[in-house]
Structures are given as structure tokens and as C-alpha cells.
């Protein structure tokens, strides 16, 4: 039981974070695609902007790992 809950917790931690990252990246990515279509030299900056929300899922991963390692 306890193990199961821990696993669910870890799953939620990374799953919700990934969802948030996905939503943010979809919008930034769409805008970025538009920007790059007009100004290809912006590609580097756009990769940077698209990459920013990834911090969320990395933190989610860190949290999930912590839950599994410390709680499990």
C-alpha cells in the first residue's frame, strides 16, 4: 500500500510537471516557429525560449527521484 502511494506520488510529481512544461512549450514553440519563419537568425534565441519551461519537468524529475529514494 505504502509503496503504491509512493509510486503514485512520484508519478504525479513528474507527470504534472511534464504536463505544465508541455503546455508552456506548445505555446512558446508555436510563437517561436512563427518568429523563425520570419527571421531565421532567431533560431538560437527561440531554442533558448522553448527550453526555459523544461526546468519544471526537471524539477519534477528531481522530486520524483527524491520521493522514490527517500520515501520508498
Amino acid at each position: 500500500m505504502e509503496n503504491g502511494l509512493t509510486a503514485i506520488g512520484a508519478g504525479l510529481a513528474i507527470g504534472l510537471a511534464a504536463l505544465g512544461t508541455g503546455i508552456a512549450q506548445s505555446r512558446i514553440g508555436a510563437a517561436g516557429a512563427g518568429a523563425v519563419a520570419e527571421k531565421p537568425e532567431l533560431a538560437g534565441v527561440i531554442i533558448l525560449l522553448v527550453a526555459i519551461p523544461e526546468t519544471m519537468v526537471i524539477l519534477g524529475f528531481a522530486t520524483a527521484a527524491m520521493i522514490l529514494l527517500l520515501g520508498g
Binding site: 505555446r27 512558446i28 510563437a31 516557429a33 518568429a35 520570419e38
Partner: peptide, 15 residues
């Protein structure tokens, strides 16, 4: 609200 990001990025550049 989906669907405006791409268009508006391009429209701003066109503007």
C-alpha cells in the same frame, strides 16, 4: 485561445 501564437508572431514581424 490556441492558434494565435504562431500567427501573431508572424504578423508582428510582417507589421
Amino acid at each position: 485561445m490556441a492558434g494565435y501564437e504562431y500567427a501573431n508572431a508572424r504578423l508582428h514581424a510582417m507589421k
